[in-house]
C-alpha cells in the first residue's frame, strides 16, 4: 500500500522513539505554552503572580472536570448536578466547623460524607434510569441540580456564610514575586487529591476493576467484576473530587453561598470538553490551561472584562472543538454503522 508521507510525518519518523510521541501538534503546543509561561514569569513579577493564581484556579476547574470525566467515561452522561453536589458538601463542612470541628477535621469528614452522597445518588436516582436513555439520565441530573440547590437554600438559607480560611493570609516573596499562601495551598491540595485518585485507578485492584467496568461492562461482568457496584463507587469518587473542588473554591471567593459552584461547573464543562471528555489527564490539563489562560487574558487584554470571561472561555472552547471535534486529548471514535 502506497501512502503519501507528509513532511511532519517524515520528520517524526527520523526521531528516536521516545521523542516521536511528543512531536504532535498538541504536546508541542502545550510545551510552547509552558515555555511562554516560564519565560514570562522570569521577565515580569506581575506575570508570575497571575500565572500562579491561574494555576491554583485551574486545578479547581480541573478537579471538577475530572469528576465529570469519571462519570462520563462510565455512563456516557454529563452530570449537571456535579457542581451542586460539591456545593452541598461544602455546606456540610461549614456545618461541621460550626459544630466545633477544626477545618482539616471537617475537611476529611466531608470527603467521607461526599463519597457516601455520591454512591447514594447513583444507586437511588441514576441506576433506575441508566438503561432507558441518555437524555433521561441527563434530565435526572438536571432535576437533581434544582433539587439540591433548593434543599441547601431551604436548610441553610441563601445568605452569605463565612468559613474559616484553611490557609493563612501569608504572602511569600521569592525574588520579588509575591505568592499567596492560599494559592499555593489550593494548588497543593488539588494536585494531591488528583494524584491520589490517579494512583488508586492505576495501581489498585479496585481501580482496575472500575476502569474495566467503565470501558467494557459486558466483559467485566464475565470476569466477575460487579459492574453496578463499581459504577456507584465511581460516582462516590467523583463526588469526593467535587467536594475538594468546592472546599478549595470557597476560600477563593471568601464566602459560601448556594451559587458557589455554578460558574465553576461551567468552566469545568469547558475544561472537560477541551481535554476530550474521555481523557482524565485531558480534563486536568484542560482545567489548568483554562485557569491560567483566563487569568492572563483578564489581566492583559482590556476588552475581556469580567462579564466576558465566561463567553470568552466558551469561544475558545468552540474554536478548539471546531479544529479538533474530540477535544485536545480525545481519540476520534470510529462509529460502526
Amino acid at each position: 500500500m502506497a501512502t503519501v508521507e507528509t513532511r511532519p510525518a517524515r520528520l517524526r519518523r527520523d526521531l528516536p522513539q521516545w521523542l516521536r510521541a511528543l512531536v504532535r501538534p498538541v504536546p508541542l503546543g502545550l510545551a510552547a505554552a509552558c515555555v511562554f509561561l516560564v519565560v514570562g514569569s522570569l521577565l515580569s513579577n506581575d506575570f508570575a503572580q497571575q500565572t500562579v493564581a491561574g494555576l491554583a484556579q485551574g486545578t479547581i476547574f480541573g478537579s471538577l472536570a475530572l469528576a465529570l470525566v469519571l462519570i462520563y467515561r462510565a455512563t456516557e452522561v454529563i452530570n449537571f448536578a456535579q457542581g451542586e453536589m460539591a456545593m452541598a458538601t461544602t455546606y456540610v463542612a461549614y456545618q461541621l466547623i460550626s459544630w466545633g470541628l477544626s477545618y482539616w477535621e471537617a475537611f476529611f469528614a466531608t470527603l467521607v460524607v461526599a463519597f457516601v452522597f455520591g454512591v447514594v445518588v447513583q444507586v437511588v436516582f441514576i441506576r433506575p434510569v441508566q438503561h432507558t436513555s441518555v437524555i433521561a439520565v441527563v434530565i435526572v441530573t438536571v432535576g437533581l441540580f434544582i433539587l439540591i440547590d433548593g434543599l441547601v437554600t431551604w436548610k441553610w438559607g441563601a445568605d452569605l456564610k463565612f468559613m474559616p480560611a484553611p490557609f493563612g493570609k501569608t504572602v511569600y516573596h521569592v525574588g520579588g514575586v509575591a505568592f499567596a499562601q492560599q494559592d499555593l495551598g489550593t494548588l497543593l491540595v488539588s494536585v494531591l487529591s488528583v494524584l491520589l485518585l490517579w494512583a488508586l485507578f492505576r495501581f489498585t485492584k479496585l481501580g482496575l476493576a472500575m476502569r474495566a467496568a467503565a470501558l467494557r461492562p459486558a466483559s467485566a461482568r464475565l470476569v466477575g467484576v460487579r459492574v453496578d457496584r463499581m459504577l456507584a463507587i465511581g460516582w462516590g469518587f467523583a463526588a469526593v473530587l467535587g467536594a475538594v473542588a468546592g472546599l478549595m473554591a470557597e476560600p477563593a471567593q471568601y464566602v459560601l453561598q448556594p451559587s458557589l459552584m455554578q460558574p465553576i461547573l461551567l468552566y469545568a464543562f469547558a475544561a472537560a470538553v477541551l481535554g476530550g471528555l474521555e481523557s482524565p489527564a485531558g480534563a486536568v490539563v484542560g482545567g489548568i490551561a483554562l485557569g491560567v489562560f483566563l487569568n492572563l487574558v483578564g489581566q492583559y487584554v482590556g476588552f475581556v472584562t469580567s462579564e466576558l470571561r465566561l463567553p470568552f472561555a466558551f469561544a475558545v472552547l468552540l474554536v478548539v472543538l471546531l479544529v479538533k471535534p474530540a477535544g485536545l486529548f480525545g481519540r476520534a471514535r470510529v462509529r460502526r454503522v
Binding site: L208, R211, A212, L215, R216, A218, S219, A220, V225
Partner: peptide, 14 residues
C-alpha cells in the same frame, strides 16, 4: 472480551 484499552498485564490481572 478483551479489554482493548488496558495493557496485556492488566487483562491478565482482571
Amino acid at each position: 472480551g478483551t479489554f482493548a484499552e488496558l495493557t496485556v498485564w492488566e487483562n491478565l490481572r482482571l
